[in-house]
């Protein structure tokens, strides 16, 4: 009797049958830096302007972010998700940063004049370590990639925001939450 092929690949063990990696293994920084450099060059060849390039980098960062959210929530928080704005920011500053870059982000600040805006500050961003920005692209910050990661994690956690990377005290990620997020968080506080 001939069988009907549903999928060309016969599953041996699905990826979900394997135990979750502990996230302790490492690769060399030069290897990562060169891979990142290829990624930036590839993006650069497909766009015309600096903002376009940064958007492209952020898009690719988002791919990383979406996957990190589930991974970290499962592994580091045993499935529990943060519901408060400040906790989710601290989760990013410490847990996310530690697992991705080996240490916490340097600072988390709240803008004085705008309750929607927060800053995550990093003196030396890992992805920027070997990047020298050409003169004609002064504003380019390749940490837009990281900004994309953060933005994806925030939105997956239910805190939609716009995250951008800027040259300020090293690299500053500006996190601007949607109005709805702030309103909801205030309601939580009032209860």
């Amino acid at each position: 009797m001939t069988s009907i092929t549903i999928s060309a690949v016969r599953p041996r063990t699905s990826i979900l049958d394997k135990s979750l990696s502990k996230g302790k293994s490492e690769v060399s920084l030069s290897c990562y830096a060169l891979l990142f450099s290829e990624l930036v060059q590839y993006c650069q060849n497909r766009v015309y302007t600096v903002p376009e390039l940064q958007n492209k980098l952020a898009e690719m960062g988002a791919e990383v972010g979406h996957r990190m959210t589930d991974l970290l929530v499962m592994r580091e928080k045993s499935g529990k998700r943060e519901v408060k704005l400040l906790s989710v920011l601290l989760f990013i500053k410490s847990t996310v940063w530690k697992s991705l870059f080996g240490r916490e982000a340097d600072k988390l600040e709240h803008a004085n004049d705008d309750d929607r805006t927060y800053y995550i500050i990093e003196k030396e961003a890992l992805v920027n370590k070997f990047v020298s920005v050409p003169k004609d692209k002064g504003s380019l910050n390749c940490a837009s990639f990281t900004a994309g990661i953060v933005e994806a994690i925030l939105s997956d956690c239910g805190f939609p925001a716009k995250v951008t990377a800027h040259w300020h005290k090293g690299t500053t990620y500006m996190v601007k939450f949607d109005h709805a997020v702030i309103t909801r968080d205030k309601q939580l506080e009032d209860r």
């Binding site: 996230g23 490492e26 060399s28 290897c31 990562y32 891979l35 990624l39 690719m60 791919e63 991974l71």
Partner: peptide, 20 residues
Amino acid sequence: AKKVNSELFTLTYGALVTQL
């Protein structure tokens, strides 16, 4: 001493392949 977490590497590579 210069090492990075391999998951960052894995996922960055994955993002690149996805984009391609």
